[in-house]
Simulated scan of single mutants.
Amino acid sequence: MTTGELLIGRHGVRRLGFGAMRLPTKPQEARKNAVAVARRAVELGVTLIDTAHLYGWGANEELLAEALHPYPDDLLIATKIGVARETPTREADYDGRPEFLRDQVEQGLRRLRVDRLELLQLHRIDPKVPLAEQLGALRDLRTEGKIGHIGLSEVTVAELTEARKTVDVVSVQNKYSLLDREHEDVLDVCAAEGIAFLPWRPVFPSVSSGLAEIAAVAAETGATAAQVSLAWLLHRSPVMLPIPGTGSIAHLEENVAAAGLRLSEEQFRRLDRLRPG
């Protein structure tokens, strides 16, 4: 199986992206390095970068705009909304009220310096608001041209099925890795329906597990445990698009190089037999 490209809506993107969550926005020296990491990701051919309003309450989006705007034509910036910041009287919490989602979209447009958020994902479903109302608000924003495509994050099969009654869902971003396969059923539905699956935390805990099988495959391929874990994900399903994050250029380069690592069927099966715990 080759990594190739994956179609997300009308965007063809390479199947190994970059998660920007771990890019610090301050102090100034750390921010300067974060800008360099984001720019290096694009230089290495990454065509999907994931961010969110939650990451620094918009500061991460502003950092990406500083680093990359005007964006290359083939770069897809995916952001997420639906989490309200803490206040003196309230902890941070999910907020799926249509007026709140609309406000966060407007903020995202300003921070990312774009006229349309090409991939907008609902960070979490708010159990206090009917799902059809939350997604109806996003559908309206898409009709207005402020959103290109809609995705979901951390959803079950039932939630994904229900959501698709209201909007076209082009991506799902759930936690998933070689040693964390809680959402195997969601991945299977995405594969059957042609929905991009963006696993977050795609290499942990594989890199720290100390499992002999992972170490053995790494030795056989001349790769690292992180690269083997990413290669397993890419082999696992054609809709898989891992988004490993890092604040280090060296780790970024290591992760991106995993797109060129090919596991044999025998190596894939050996890793596939590993299970959490």
Score class of each variant (00 low, 15 high):
V129A: 10
D168R: 14
V157Q: 07
R110D: 11
Q173A: 01
G194I: 09
L109D: 05
R142T: 15
A158W: 00
G108M: 04
D115F: 04
E184T: 15
E144M: 11
H149E: 15
F100Y: 15
R111T: 10
L187E: 13
K146H: 00
S153I: 03
G96C: 13
L160S: 05
V129Q: 11
V157M: 12
R124A: 10
G194A: 10
V114D: 07
T166D: 02
R97M: 08
I214K: 06
A163I: 08
L141P: 06
L187H: 03
L122G: 02
P127E: 12
E193R: 11
D95H: 13
D126K: 08
E159I: 02
K165F: 08
L178C: 03
F100L: 06
Q107G: 06
V167P: 05
I125C: 02
Y94H: 13
I195K: 04
R102F: 06
L131G: 13
V207S: 04
Q134D: 14
L109F: 05
Y176K: 00
R164I: 01
V217G: 07
V217E: 10
V114R: 13
A192G: 10
L120R: 08
A132P: 07
G136Y: 03
A137R: 07
V157F: 01
R142S: 14
R201L: 02
V217A: 07
V157A: 11
V169L: 08
R116W: 01
L152P: 07
R142D: 13
H183P: 01
E133Q: 14
L135Y: 09
V207R: 01
T143A: 15
D188G: 00
V189S: 01
R139L: 12
V114S: 03
W200Q: 06
R110N: 09
H183I: 13
P98C: 06
Q121F: 10
S153A: 12
D185V: 13
I147F: 04
R110A: 05
L152E: 09
A215S: 11
A132V: 13
H183V: 06
L135T: 14
D95Y: 11
G108A: 11
L160Y: 01
L179A: 04
D126H: 00
L160T: 14
D93P: 03
P199E: 03
V217D: 03
T161C: 04
A163Y: 00
L141A: 12
D188K: 15
A158D: 15
E118G: 11
V203C: 01
D126G: 01
D180L: 09
P127H: 12
V217N: 08
V114I: 14
R164G: 02
D168W: 02
E144L: 14
L109Q: 03
L178Y: 09
L141T: 12
K146Q: 12
I125A: 00
T143L: 09
K175I: 09
A196Y: 03
R102Y: 01
Q134S: 07
P127Y: 12
V170G: 04
T166R: 11
F204H: 07
D185L: 00
H149R: 14
A215C: 06
D140L: 09
G136W: 06
